[in-house]
Measured scan of single mutants.
Amino acid sequence: AEIMKKTDFDKVASEYTKIGTISTTGEMSPLDAREDLIKKADEKGADVVVLTSGQTENKIHGTADIYKKK
C-alpha cells in the first residue's frame, strides 16, 4: 500500500472504496510508525493509506483510513 496525502487522495477518491481504519501506537520513530501503518494496510489488502491523525509526545499515535481500488 502507498501513503497518500489527503489533498492528493481527494483528486482520485472516486477510484477507491474505503475498507477500514488502522492505527499505530508506541515508542517508535515517525518512520517506524509509517512503516507499521503500511504493513497493517498491506495485511488488509489495501492499495492506499490516507493519514487522518498523528500525534507525538512521549509516544507516537497515528490513524489512517485504508482504501482498495474499485
Rank of each mutant, 00 (worst) to 15 (best):
E2G: 06
I3K: 01
I3D: 00
I3E: 06
I3W: 10
M4L: 04
M4F: 06
M4T: 02
M4R: 01
K5E: 15
K5T: 15
K6Y: 05
K6V: 06
T7A: 15
T7K: 10
D8H: 06
D8F: 04
F9T: 00
F9R: 02
F9A: 01
F9K: 00
D10T: 07
D10L: 07
K11G: 05
K11Q: 07
K11I: 07
K11N: 08
K11D: 05
V12Q: 04
V12G: 01
V12L: 07
V12I: 12
S14N: 12
S14W: 12
S14G: 10
E15S: 10
E15F: 13
E15A: 10
Y16D: 00
Y16G: 00
T17H: 12
T17V: 14
T17L: 10
K18H: 15
K18Y: 15
K18W: 15
I19D: 02
I19W: 03
I19S: 02
G20K: 00
G20A: 07
G20F: 03
T21S: 12
T21H: 08
T21I: 07
I22V: 08
I22F: 01
I22E: 01
I22Q: 01
S23W: 13
S23G: 05
S23L: 07
S23V: 09
S23N: 08
S23H: 12
T24M: 08
T24C: 13
T24L: 11
T24S: 06
T24A: 07
T24E: 03
T25N: 13
T25F: 11
T25G: 12
T25D: 14
T25H: 13
G26E: 11
G26D: 12
E27Y: 13
E27P: 13
E27A: 13
E27I: 12
M28L: 12
M28H: 06
M28A: 06
S29K: 08
S29L: 08
S29D: 10
P30Q: 13
P30N: 12
P30L: 13
L31Q: 15
L31P: 07
L31T: 12
D32G: 07
D32K: 12
D32T: 09
D32S: 09
D32I: 06
A33N: 05
A33E: 07
A33W: 14
R34V: 12
R34L: 14
R34N: 07
R34Q: 09
R34P: 03
R34H: 08
E35S: 13
E35K: 14
D36I: 10
D36Y: 15
D36F: 13
D36G: 05
L37T: 02
I38V: 08
K39C: 07
K39E: 04
K40C: 06
A41E: 00
A41M: 00
A41P: 00
A41N: 02
D42Q: 13
D42M: 14
D42P: 00
D42N: 15
E43M: 09
E43F: 07
E43C: 11
E43V: 06
K44H: 12
K44R: 14
K44W: 14
K44V: 11
G45T: 04
G45L: 04
G45E: 05
A46W: 00
D47R: 02
D47C: 08
D47P: 01
V48S: 00
V48G: 01
V48P: 02
V48F: 02
V48M: 05
V48L: 08
V49R: 00
V49P: 00
V50Q: 01
V50S: 02
V50Y: 01
V50K: 00
L51I: 14
L51T: 04
L51F: 09
T52I: 10
T52C: 11
S53D: 12
S53H: 13
S53F: 15
S53M: 13
G54Q: 14
G54T: 09
G54L: 15
G54I: 14
G54M: 15
Q55H: 13
Q55S: 14
Q55G: 11
Q55W: 15
T56M: 12
T56L: 14
T56A: 11
E57F: 10
E57L: 12
N58Y: 11
N58V: 09
N58I: 08
N58P: 08
N58G: 13
K59T: 13
I60E: 10
I60D: 08
I60W: 14
I60C: 11
H61E: 11
H61V: 15
G62T: 15
G62R: 15
G62V: 15
G62A: 15
T63I: 06
T63C: 08
A64S: 03
A64E: 03
A64K: 03
D65H: 06
I66V: 04
I66M: 05
I66S: 00
I66A: 04
I66N: 00
I66G: 02
Y67Q: 01
Y67D: 02
Y67K: 01
Y67E: 02
K68Y: 04
K68G: 03
K68F: 05
K69S: 04
K69V: 05
K69D: 03
K69N: 04
K70Y: 04
K70F: 07
K70L: 09
K70V: 09
K70E: 05
